[in-house]
Design a protein around this nucleic acid. Structure first.
Length: 458
RNA sequence: GGCUAGGUGGCAGAGUGGUUAUGCAGCGGCCUGCAAAGCCGCGGACAUCGGUUCGAUUCCGUUCCUAGCCUCCA
């Protein structure tokens, strides 16, 4: 099985072939840095981090994830807080990378910022005007959607129908209601750059076209993002780029992740149900959040809840439980093969739930086996699979003994276990069970095995 | 209203034109001093109504429902 991806433009799953043999370029629409990332923002970061890991196994990958650091919301945040824009963006870029890092998301190869690509944006806009795909009106430069016959292909929309159903008041300077802004004037107090059309700032969509071209070339292999970006953002990017490049395709595969809801409702600030990753990682292990995000297929809707998190914890308990007590060196887990079934599942359009199911199948084989050599090999494979998925990244003992907010220390637990061991050896089961019950009330479970007792927190 | 994606067992969540998902929960058994963990086994599902077919949860169409988009948004 080779990698297959669901391509939004073609509307089906397609065998993946990069433009250049052995090399892949991928562009992901990253954050607008005016606030902390919430759990919904984390989904594409995690999903496409997994895709990047998968691609790096077989290709030389160049992965770009942009930063939108010029935007009305950022301007508003600056006005609201009285802090300079640069201070706000710098702070939230760092927070974003730190928070995503806690979820096992690696940094991309390139992290281009919009404000550092104004020249390239102006260049594309000029080209579009020259080729008569764009026009200047009332200080703005707008893209003329009627000049692009393919407009609407990505989001499967018909411009004529859209015009009929338009709900928004149309700016008077637009020739057609769906023409979108490439460049707009800026006021003296807002960020702005000199351009052939006066001092102004870019529209939202143009940055991705400019940065993708500069860093990855006219055609990227994979363009990724959230489903909500399909229209208008990606539709517009595609229109700009293909028109500026005389029809050269902009992206070979468009992949979009589904939405995340929170307890079956949309996350929104007005409802006050926004979960920030920055806060969550203070009390929840990052890889637990990551696993919960990978628990559903990336294109499916995912409902975030305590139950979902609980389910992920059970899964990690089972996986860690399987490899617990088996020593696998770091060098070994790096060199050993990831189970083929896990790879196959992931190569089938990033089917992470299937991949996890295969991990459990291997875990059961491991639990079943009494042959130490076989157990060791299965554990190593399981850990290698964990490395690919970005889970099982800590020592199993630490996983099961993390004191968290408990006021009972690990040493105290060990001491109680020694007392219990003595009691058991004297066949004083009443005392032994009393100790076990006492620990149970504090969330510690004892597991007696052939090589003595071990414990875990639940 | 339009477009897109969905509706699977108690819950989560894959998949398939005829045979086991997987995890949690439940039931029975093994193991254990008793438990826990683990192992073995069991039950239980494919929204609705039609159609195609020897046979459909899987393909086609209807209806109902849900989510996203159509305006900034992962």
């Amino acid at each position: 099985m080779t990698l297959h991806l669901h391509d939004t433009l073609r509307g089906k799953k397609i065998a993946f072939e990069p433009l250049k043999e052995g090399e892949v370029t991928m562009y992901l629409c990253g954050p607008t840095v005016y606030n902390y990332a919430h759990i919904g923002n984390a989904r594409p970061a995690v999903v496409f981090d997994l895709l990047a890991r998968l691609l790096r196994r077989t290709y030389k990958l160049t992965f770009a994830r942009n930063i939108t650091d010029v935007d009305d919301k950022i301007n508003q945040a600056s006005i609201d807080t009285g802090k300079p824009i640069e201070e706000i963006t710098a702070r939230f870029i760092k927070a974003y990378n730190d928070d995503m890092g806690m979820l096992g998301v690696s940094l991309p190869d390139i992290e281009p910022r919009a404000t550092q690509h104004i020249v390239e944006m102006v260049e594309i806009i000029s080209t579009l005007i020259e080729k008569e795909f764009a026009y200047e009106a009332d200080g703005h430069v707008l893209f003329d959607v009627t000049a692009n016959s393919d407009y609407g292909a990505l989001s499967k929309r018909d411009i004529r129908e859209m015009i009929a159903g338009a709900r928004v008041e149309v700016a008077p300077y637009k020739r057609s209601p769906h023409d979108f802004v490439l460049w707009k004037p800026s006021t003296p107090e807002l960020p702005g750059w000199d351009s052939p059309w006066g001092r102004g700032r870019p529209g939202w969509h143009i940055e991705c076209s400019a940065m993708a071209k500069k860093h990855l070339g006219m055609t990227v292999d994979i363009h990724a993002g959230g489903q909500d970006l399909v229209f208008p953002h990606h539709e517009n990017e595609m229109a700009q780029s293909t028109c500026a490049h005389d029809g050269v395709p902009f992206a070979r595969y468009w992949v979009h992740n589904g939405f995340l809801s929170l307890d079956s409702t949309k996350m929104s600030k007005s409802l006050g149900n926004v979960l920030l990753v920055h806060d969550m990682v203070k009390t929840i292990p990052g890889e637990l959040i990551r696993l919960a995000l990978l628990g559903a297929h990336y294109r499916q809707p995912l409902d975030w809840s305590d139950a979902a998190l609980e389910g992920a914890r059970n899964m990690l308990d089972r996986l860690y439980g399987a490899v617990r007590g088996i020593e696998v060196s770091a060098a070994e887990r790096q060199s050993v093969a990831v189970p083929a079934t896990v790879i196959a599942a992931l190569e089938d359009d990033i089917n992470s739930p299937k991949a996890l199911a295969e991990m459990f199948t291997q875990a059961r084989q491991l639990n079943k086996s009494t042959d130490e050599q076989e157990r060791h090999a299965l554990a190593a494979g399981l850990l290698a699979g964990g490395d690919l998925l970005g889970i099982m990244q800590i020592d199993p003992e630490d996983w099961f003994s993390d004191p968290g907010s408990s006021d009972l220390s690990n040493d105290e637990i060990d001491a109680m276990l020694i007392q219990r061991k003595d009691a058991r050896e004297n066949r004083d089961f009443a005392t032994a069970d009393k100790i076990r019950d006492q620990l149970a009330t504090q969330g510690v479970t004892i597991e007696d095995g052939p090589s003595g007792a071990r414990w875990r927190r639940s």
